[in-house]
């Protein structure tokens, strides 16, 4: 299967990790608003793609992978870093989708908030998943 859902992963997340994500997300949104308020919408808009969420998720992924290996008595530090590196590959592809998200909101902004944001969100998802699939296809065919 190309992509699978692993619900067990939800049990691995600790309460403090939920709190960290929530606080980081809240602070990043407040920061973007503050920069817009002080420096104008163009300066604030840059912070809509600030990598604060990625920092938190990569660190947690490394820790989870390292802990999973350590529980089996294995040395998992290198594995943890590789897992976080794979996450960053996905984030890179998602960032290209984020460029599309911004451009759709910019182009359709006058058509209304719901139309612009819903179309942009769909475009982000479709483009990111397509890029991910293309990367996977190219890697598989080049390895044969």
């Amino acid at each position: 299967m190309l992509v699978s859902i692993r619900t067990k992963a939800l049990n691995e997340t600790k309460v403090w990790e939920y709190v960290v994500r929530f606080v980081f997300g809240g602070l990043a949104t407040a920061l973007a608003g503050l920069v817009s308020h002080k420096g104008g919408p163009f300066a604030g808009g840059l912070f809509l793609a600030f990598p604060v969420i990625f920092c938190a998720s990569a660190t947690m992924i490394e820790r989870h992978e390292w802990k999973r290996k350590a529980d089996r008595g294995l040395e998992g530090k290198r594995r943890g870093k590789l897992a976080a590196a794979l996450d960053s590959v996905g984030a890179l592809l998602g960032s290209i989708g984020l460029v599309a998200f911004g451009s759709i909101v910019w182009l359709l902004g006058e058509s209304g908030a719901i139309t612009a944001i819903a179309t942009a969100l769909t475009s982000w998802l479709v483009l990111s998943v397509t890029l991910w699939w293309c990367r996977r296809y190219i890697r598989r065919t080049s390895l044969r």
């Binding site: 949104t29 973007a32 809509l48 969420i53 960053s88 996905g90 984030a91 998602g94 911004g102 991910w132």
Partner: peptide
């Protein structure tokens, strides 16, 4: 966190989460 492989899950690390909240309020 739900998806595997990790490279696919990573797409959500660059999700427009802050943008959704901020742009919604800006509109």
């Amino acid at each position: 966190a739900l998806f595997r492989p990790k490279s696919f899950a990573g797409l959500f690390s660059a999700a427009p989460s802050v943008a959704l909240a901020t742009l919604g309020l800006a509109f």
